[in-house]
């Protein structure tokens, strides 16, 4: 029932928000980045439910980050709510432009086409010296409805902000996954012919999922840019997109919280292996993913989520 969902969301918010008190600076930053990236991955999971995987979600991560930065630097906007809204809007528009095109592709073609779009953006940004070229741009610390914290309070505010967005987005996506349209998405992955012959448009449902993924990607990119204070074309680079896919596969499509758990795991593994075996951490990550795929083919989410019946 819905009440269970809202209870879960409240609990998730409480637990995550408690991090702002307990966690040291570095860990809070790590979690904020992981949650921001988790938003992007949640978008991929939405597409995965329909049977496609975007290898180019860096596109929206990057568009979101640059939109916020350019708006902040050109118009002096620093309000985090406004910046997030504008980036989401920009990604909504771009998503709506490319969605109908991509929605007729499946499998490797969908993956490669989305990758190609992101690499075009990467290439263009790298060449555009007016907006920093490969060096990128800096973005000033955000304000929160007029409040301009600094130091630890800024970190905390940013962290609480991303936690709130994650909980809201996660709840909305869960509602969507469990909805009638969500069921059509699952059915599309399974049997497109059946879906069309029931009278639903497979292309439309694919477009919706793509556009939702775009918006989530943009929000994630905005928050990441604000947390880092910096954006560069790497946001759209294929390795960035690859990490998002990694998290989505690690999480599976059964559980929304699993996406954010997976995102945090990735950040932790990256930080620690970077520290202890700087040259082989990708190897560690690869082995880790392999083990998960073998042991939990439906991802971490299958430890808690049930596909059948009433997922919470």
């Amino acid at each position: 029932m819905r009440s269970k969902l809202f209870l879960g969301a409240t609990a998730a918010f409480a637990v995550l928000a408690a991090g702002s008190v307990i966690l040291p600076d570095w860990a809070m930053f790590l979690c904020a980045m992981a949650l921001a990236k988790g938003l992007v991955c949640l978008g991929i999971v939405g597409m995965m439910r329909g049977g496609v995987v975007s290898f180019g979600q860096g596109l929206y991560y990057c568009i979101g980050a640059y939109t916020a930065t350019l708006v902040a630097n050109s118009f002096g906007v620093s309000d985090i709510f406004l910046l997030t809204l504008l980036s989401a809007l920009a990604c909504l528009l771009v998503g709506m432009a490319f969605g109908p095109l991509l929605s007729s592709y499946r499998g490797i073609f969908f993956a490669m086409l989305s990758l190609a779009l992101s690499m075009v953006l990467y290439g263009s940004l790298s060449k555009m010296s007016v907006i920093g070229g490969t060096d990128g741009l800096n973005i000033a610390a955000p304000t929160f409805l007029g409040w301009a914290p600094e130091g630890r309070p800024l970190q905390t505010a940013l962290y609480i902000y991303v936690v709130a967005i994650v909980v809201i987005a996660g709840t909305l996506m869960r509602i969507y996954f469990d909805s009638e349209q969500g069921l059509i998405t699952l059915a599309t992955r399974d049997n497109e012919l059946r879906v069309e012959y029931l009278g639903a448009s497979v292309r439309n449902i694919m477009t919706y999922n793509y556009v939702f993924g775009a918006v989530l990607g943009g929000i994630g990119g905005t928050i990441a840019a604000l947390a880092l204070g910096h954006v560069d074309p790497e946001f759209a680079f294929w390795t960035t997109s690859g990490e998002f896919v990694f998290v989505a596969i690690l999480a599976g499509y059964l559980s929304v919280p699993a996406v954010f758990v997976a995102a945090i795991i990735l950040e932790l593994v990256r930080s620690f292996s970077n520290l202890y075996f700087p040259n082989t951490w990708q190897l560690a990550l690869g082995i880790f993913l392999l083990v998960v795929i073998v042991l939990l083919p439906n991802g971490l989410g299958s430890l808690v989520g049930r596909r059948k019946g009433n997922a919470a």
């Binding site: 819905r2 509602i175 469990d178 909805s179 009638e180 349209q181 969500g182 639903a200 019946g309």
Partner: peptide, 9 residues
């Protein structure tokens, strides 16, 4: 028509 909010179940 199919809803984005109404539970399938």
């Amino acid at each position: 028509g199919p809803s984005f909010l109404r539970r399938a179940h």
